[in-house]
Structures are given as C-alpha cells and as structure tokens.
Amino acid sequence: MRRSTLKKLLDLDRRWIFLTVLICAIGARFVDFELPVYPKAGVRAMYDKIEEVAAKNGTIIVSMDYDPSSKPELEPLSRALLRHAFSRKVKVIAMTHNPNGQRLAQTVLEETASEFDVKYGDDYVLLGYKAGSGTLVINMGQDFRDAFSKDHAGKDLASFAVTRELTSIAQIDYVISVSASAYWESWMIYGHDRYGFPYGVGVTGVIAPDIFPFLQTGQVTGLVGGLAGAAEYETLIKKPGMAVTGMKPQSAIHMLLVLFVLFGNFVFFYDLVLKRRQEKGHREERRT
C-alpha cells in the first residue's frame, strides 16, 4: 500500500465515519439476532434488595435525577425498577433533584403505575423537584415534612398512606438514585452516611466507574451502570423492554468503535513503518 493511500485513510472525511455509525445503529435494529444478557453482581444486589423490601412490605425512594439529555440511557432503568417495585407491592416515593427531571419522572411513574393495580397516595407518591440537592437530603433526614410538606401537585403529604407516618428518610427501606450527574453523591454523603438507609445507584455508563469504590465499601448496595445494566435488570424481572432492545445497536456500535480504533492504529503504524523505510532509502541514496 502506498503512503498517499494511507494518508487518505488517516485523513478520512469524518462524514464517512458518521455514516458508518448511522448505518450500523439502524441496521442492528432490523437484523434479527439474540444477545445473551447475564446480570452482574451489582445489578443482582439491587434486585435482591428490592425483594428484601417487598418481603417486609416496605417503602423505597426512587430519585430520578436526570434530564432529557440522559433519558435514553436512564429511563429504561427507572421503568424496570418501578415495574419491579409495583409488581412486588413495594411502596414508592418518587422525586427528582434535577429541575428538568420532574416531567420525565411523572411520565415514567404514571405510565408504569397504569400497568399495575396500584393507586396514587396508597402505593406511590411523586414529590417532584425541590432545590438544594445535598442540603435537601439533610433536611429530609432531619424533618421530612419540613423538606416536603406537599406532593408535586400541591396536595398535603399527610393525606397519603405512603407518607403519613414518615418523619425522616432514615425510615425508608431503600433509596435509589437514578442519576446522570453528581446527584448520586449527595444521596450518599448527606443521606446514607448520615441516616444509614440502604442506598443503591443507577447511573450512566460514563459515571459507573466512579461508584465501584463505594460498592466495595458497602456504602452503595446495588449498582446499575448504563443501558447494559438496565438490560440486565430487565432480564432479572423477566420483562425485556427498551434496554434489552437497545443492546443490539449498542453492541454493534461498541464493536464498530473497537474496529475503528484497531484499524486507525494499524494504518497509523503501517504509515510509520513506510515513512521510516522511505527515510532510510533517502539516507542511503545520499551516501551513494
């Protein structure tokens, strides 16, 4: 292969790369193939924890701390978690730390609740959004009613069976933050570490590596990372949904990225070898 050809390959117009990614993502949706999804330990730990809460007819908080930009990656997990909780009659208190997340949380909650025989107020409640993040969590631990006296629609929390007896988040059996930014840290530092409730995290694939140290210390009970983690959770509850479907394009794109990296490196080093040979040839020519 000539160096000029290699140069062309190295300087390939990025629109060709974009087109390949597009074809790969769309193509994978239409090609019929099955991918095995095996739940990892962190995902199984979250599933087991909810089963444990279900056994004692307990209550969980699902904090959907993401906005529309992370919706494709995190919403499948929110749905799977809520489906699991509602199917096992676990009471759910939903909320968000993200000012742009309330509408998303409300839609997911209402759509998932409609699939089950659950009633607003008796089985689940949406607190909505309040500013404060870490300080809000501290406030919820000190005096829950001071932090949230009403639900998202302005109704008194004392009128709902789920929240009537609630005075502190320390009474909650499991808190899960589905987060696309540092909100998961607020729940851990100002919530779990102060008030001792069990705490699980569902995050985007990019954030997941940050959580491993806390999973190992036991500060986090259950970790679901990215769409792959959500697919594992869907497999555990035996309700394949958007995440399992999304595994095909995601796997295809991951493989494409690996091929791009390998091919890019092959071209780069091959070009380097040719360049050195050329320079050696020039030096010998000059000598002769």
């Binding site: 494709p72 494409l256 791009f260 091919f263």
Partner: peptide, 20 residues
C-alpha cells in the same frame, strides 16, 4: 436534549478513529 446526547456517539466514533 436527546439529540445532543445521541450526537456524542458520532463524535466518539470519529475521535476513536482519528486520535486514539
């Protein structure tokens, strides 16, 4: 918001090929 997030995949692919 969803569009901004999706576009990332295209840029990552381009960066993976060119700079990694």
């Amino acid at each position: 918001g969803a569009t901004m997030f999706s576009v990332l995949a295209f840029f990552i692919a381009s960066a993976a090929y060119r700079t990694f």
